[in-house]
Design a protein around this nucleic acid. Structure first.
Length: 308
DNA sequence: CCTCACACCTGGGTGC
DNA sequence: TGCACCCAGGTGTGAG
């Protein structure tokens, strides 16, 4: 379900509860949610239990919590508590990578609180928040948790499994010109390109349809024929729709997208195309059409959005 | 290298 | 009630 705004809402919600917390217990209720973890469930549990968590990061729809394995406290008068471990490996060289897939949620709960369809449970002890529980809930199990190595990337560090993901358009280091250049090189339709996370990340089916509607671009407009001004306009609309959705707390149609506190976002009220088939276009009044494209729905105004 | 179809999954809603 | 069928916000993989 979740696209960039929803994942960012989760990241913001996790921040106060996990930053500086120590993992006291890990319970894997369904090993399929560890599909992307390189190793058995016991390995995931062992490496995570006792680890200390740093502030959550995100790229596109991927979220990760850097972790530092619990050190054996040195003799009295410890030196550099935040320095490298005694074996010389840097602190926070690994992270728990979370991807919500189509239906994942991370719920921050009081200790002992359970949720339906919880696949993985992390019990934490936070210096301020006290005992908290993170329930990773995922109906369809397209999401996952995994421990992965952090590798250098553009001045920062990202999990190895996330390195192929492009920066998202809200990232200050997103390179507009490079995006336009690569877009023009493609031999495909614009919606396919917007959904390609190695070209631009964070956009999914809802926000692709919304941005295309706002920019009056047909979903199958060949990228190579999209003029630079239209491409710029489209990127502006992508940023606009993602930004507005983030402020509104994301798009919630049902219980499947909720923030870490179990609350819904409000952006569903602001949708102009997605899920509005048969309803009038907010610009021209003609009905919004739904077509199957890439095994999913594409919603657009057949009058305002034409290939040209 | 690029592009695209497909597999991977569960459960909620709808219509008969 | 039961049941078949359709729908769902994503991504890695491998064929061409």
């Amino acid at each position: 379900m979740p696209e960039l705004p929803e994942v960012e809402v989760v990241r913001l919600g996790l921040q106060p509860a996990v930053t500086g917390a120590t993992v006291t217990a890990v319970t894997v209720l369904d090993e399929r949610s560890l599909r992307r973890h390189p190793g058995p469930a016991e390995d995931f549990v062992d490496r995570l239990t006792g680890a200390r968590l740093a502030a959550p990061s995100r790229r596109g729809k991927y979220l990760w919590l850097p972790l530092k394995t619990q050190e054996i406290p040195p003799e009295n008068g410890a030196l550099s508590p935040n320095g490298p471990k005694s074996d010389g490996s840097p602190a926070f060289s690994e992270a728990v990578v979370v991807h919500l897939g189509m239906s994942g949620q991370v719920l921050v709960r009081d200790r002992d609180t359970d949720d339906r369809i919880t696949r993985i449970r992390l019990d934490l002890k936070h210096p301020v928040a006290g005992q908290v529980r993170l329930n990773f809930v995922d109906q369809r199990i397209f999401g996952s948790m995994a421990i992965d190595e952090l590798i250098p990337d553009g001045g920062g560090r990202v999990p190895r499994s996330v390195a192929h993901i492009a920066r998202d358009p809200l990232d200050p280091l997103f390179d507009d010109r490079e995006f336009f250049r690569r877009l023009a090189m493609r031999r495909t339709g614009i919606k396919r390109a917007l959904l390609d996370q190695t070209l631009i990340s964070g956009i999914g089916n809802i926000y692709a349809d919304e941005a295309l509607w706002a920019a009056r671009v047909h979903y199958d407009q060949p990228t190579a024929t999209l003029s630079r001004p239209r491409a710029k306009r489209l990127l502006d609309e992508v940023r606009s729709v993602l930004g507005k959705a983030l402020v509104e707390g994301g798009t919630s149609f049902d219980w499947q997208y909720l923030n870490v506190n179990g609350e819904a976002g409000y952006f569903a009220h602001s949708l102009n195309a997605y899920g509005r088939q048969g309803e009038p276009c907010a610009r021209c009044g003609r009905p919004i059409v739904r077509e199957t494209f890439m095994n999913r729905g594409s919603h657009f105004c057949a009058y305002c959005q034409r290939v040209r």
